[in-house]
């Protein structure tokens, strides 16, 4: 019998404290980072649409969910892309190649339902382009015709354009300020595509909650089935805490075990938006403290010098 990834882990003695080494790191835009990190078991199990939960350090870190942007079962790595926003995402961005993340658990959530729908529009907003890419890639493999719409505030913040170009039959880029592609919100081209003779059979939208909300309002007018992937606050990611709960068609659902993908026309986005902001003040405080701490121990200077 061939050795499973699990057995190999034991042989290398890594299983007890499966720590996760950062193999590769890049900065995709001012505040968006990507890493390839070793997570052999997750890499071999991950399917498009799934996510992980990580805690940088077992003692003090919070647990945050991040979508798996890509996985490489052969190399045993997964790709994570995130935006530097609060303390944890800043600390994550400060990690260097060779350093480790103590805890990564996954793959979590239900994988994307893949089939040959026909014509599929994939709409990605900002950092949402990262989790969208593996889904669009898989949909393409299923034989779908893919139209991708990527939006960002400006040229610098747009990520993964060439990756999407490679798998899309048509690619539309929009920026709020017109510094790249069309000066528009993603809803504009989305509406135009819905009005075309060949109406899309399916739409996938991943991005900020507000953007997903307005995209769903557009596709609802045209009665195009639309799936969204929600990224809510979570702790365990296994259905245990209920912190990620959202209202779907008036029913309470857990993003971690029932999602993360839902019928966008049924999501109560207004409530979700408010729940996302529950700890805004806490997050700011934690970030300020972290920055202050970095100054004191001179971490900020080190990174400065490197640049």
């Amino acid at each position: 019998m061939a050795e499973s990834g699990f057995e190999r882990n034991f042989i290398f003695g890594r299983v007890k404290k499966m720590s996760h080494k950062i193999i590769h790191k890049e900065q995709l835009s001012e505040n968006v980072f990507a890493i390839d990190v070793s997570a052999e078991l997750i890499a071999s199990a991950a399917k498009p649409g799934q996510f992980i939960i990580l805690a940088i350090n077992s003692e003090y870190s919070e647990r945050i969910p991040l979508t798996i942007a890509a996985s490489n079962a052969e190399k045993g790595t997964i790709r994570l892309i995130w935006q530097r926003l609060g303390k944890t995402t800043t600390e994550l961005a400060d990690l260097k190649v060779g350093e480790t993340i103590e805890n990564i658990a996954g793959p979590l959530g239900k994988p994307t339902h893949l089939e040959n729908f026909g014509l599929v529009v994939c709409v990605g907003g900002g950092i949402g382009c990262a989790p969208l890419l593996p889904i669009a890639t898989a949909l393409k493999k299923q034989g779908n015709k893919i139209i991708s719409i990527l939006g960002a505030r400006n040229k610098e913040l747009l990520i993964l354009e060439s990756e999407f170009a490679a798998i899309s039959d048509e690619l539309i880029v929009t920026t709020d300020d017109g510094s790249l592609g069309r000066k528009a919100l993603v809803t504009e081209p989305l509406k135009e595509i819905c009005q075309r003779k060949q109406k899309p059979d399916k739409v996938f939208v991943i991005g900020p909650a507000v953007m997903m909300k307005f995209c769903c309002e557009v596709t609802k007018q045209f009665d195009v089935p639309t799936d969204v992937s929600l990224n809510t606050i979570m702790i365990d990611g296994t259905g245990m805490c209920g912190g990620c709960r959202v209202e779907i068609g008036g029913e309470t659902k857990f993003v971690c075990v029932d999602g993360p993908e839902f019928d966008g026309h049924k999501v109560n986005f207004d409530l979700m938006l408010k729940r996302l902001n529950a700890y805004k003040n806490h997050e700011q405080k934690a970030l300020e403290q972290y920055k202050e701490h970095k100054c004191k121990i001179g971490l900020d200077k080190k990174t400065e010098r490197k640049k």
């Binding site: 019998m1 499973s4 699990f6 057995e7 034991f10 299983v15 007890k16 404290k17 499966m18 078991l41 997750i42 199990a45 805890n103 990564i104 658990a105 996954g106 793959p107 979590l108 296994t238």
Partner: peptide, 23 residues
Amino acid sequence: VKIVRNFIVGKTRTIEQLMSEDG
């Protein structure tokens, strides 16, 4: 006893996998 944390049975590996592939 070996202890494996961050391992979600049913997600990271299924019970079926533990028994048929992992021995």
